[in-house]
Design a protein around this nucleic acid. Structure first.
Lengths: 212, 212
DNA sequence: CCGTAATGTTACGCGTGAGTAAGTTACCGT
DNA sequence: ACGGTAACTTACTCACGCGTAACATTACGG
């Protein structure tokens, strides 16, 4: 009648995930430099050399965090969006998935966007990811313009508009992080209203879809 | 006929500005932690103990940078905006001033927004500044809604909308930083079009004001 | 013209935290 | 049951960079 006594030794794959969990938590709390490898190891319930053995030095570890969180985010969104839908519907779906993800992975979001964008070795990588996203959105907008039957807009105009869209999403992601109580879906609705209709219509009381 | 031989010793006020200039440059390039006091001193053309004598330890120095750049930005915008103008006109003026400032002070913007928001001792202060700005914008929107003669909107709705607006501005500030060649005024126009009209109208070819 | 305060320098102490060497214990296939 | 390997630890080294003590020099008011 001895409980199987959970093994003190765990397989590598499991430990790696525990380490990444701990690292994301600590990086997001302290910031890249202030975070110490010792604290990360402690949080992971393991000793420091194991972290080095499995995930390498601090920089590599941070990149691993970035990569995991970034991939998770992209997949969460990609899973939901279906091509060949009208643009507003695609936006709506993508945004719901995005805010839901941020709401459920605050620390990951913080590492990705609050930390990495400033710290020099990583800023470039995040900028690249963001750039790809902006171009995807710009492409979407381009197709939408064609569909409505207009002359093709200048690429710079579309890219700038995509920049703005992505910016709104990032900013409202902070809103989601700060307002724990509010349903991410409500935030997605707010964004759709704002972005799709514009301030002019909005101030006049119109809405793309009611907020709640 | 001896040129007055610029004095090697300079008054405190001048040195302090040189130091802050150097600090902003180095902080923006390297990030808070990676920036070394030695490099800042060297960039300022002075030795390290002088920096400590005039502006204190690293944290105090960074706060001083934050404060100077933040104040400059606020003043640049406040100087332009006049109350009692219609909301869209106020937005337009404020945005022109904002993007012009960012275009002329890239490093300052980077320190303020890319660095400070992640680094723990400072994140709170920046968040507070940003929060005040959001509330100002929200107040503006509230007055606009009343002016159009609607029932007062819920505060949370206005604040969220202000969040989104500020987010667009921040994001397009990055656009300005990256596209050195483009006139900041063009960026301000892009933002007005996007924010005021919304994607729906915009994709159909309408515009608040042509881009160029 | 001289003292004194402001401006400036060189050279160092010292904590902190990244990264590692060497050794130990549990697990697992044969 | 018994090698061998994967999981794990303790206990260091060492560089880096913040902050300072102690000292030098120029300006300038009285």
């Amino acid at each position: 009648m001895s409980t199987p006594a959970i093994p003190r030794r765990l397989p590598r794959a499991v430990r790696e995930q525990q380490m990444l969990d701990a690292a994301v938590r600590v990086f997001s709390r302290r910031g890249y430099h202030a975070a110490s490898m010792d604290e990360i190891a402690e949080q992971a319930g393991i000793s420091k050399p194991m972290v080095y053995a499995y995930l390498g030095a601090k920089e590599e570890l941070f990149v691993a965090c970035l990569h995991r969180e970034g991939t998770r985010l992209m997949e969460a969104v990609a899973r939901i969006v279906e091509p060949d839908l009208p643009v507003d519907e695609q936006l709506w779906r993508g945004l719901r998935a995005f805010f839901a993800f941020v709401g459920a992975h605050r620390d990951g979001w913080s590492v990705l966007y609050r930390q990495a964008r400033g710290q020099e070795p990583f800023a470039a990588e995040v900028a690249a990811m963001r750039g790809r996203l902006v171009e995807i959105v710009a492409g979407l907008l381009g197709r939408a313009v064609e569909a409505v039957g207009h002359r093709a807009a200048r690429p710079a105009d579309l890219t700038a508009m995509a920049y703005a869209l992505v910016g709104v999403a990032e900013s409202l992601a902070d809103w989601v992080v700060e307002h724990t109580d509010e349903d991410p879906e409500v935030t997605a609705t707010r964004m759709m209203n704002f972005v799709w209709l514009g301030a002019d219509d909005l101030l006049r009381g119109r809405s793309w879809r009611p907020v709640s």
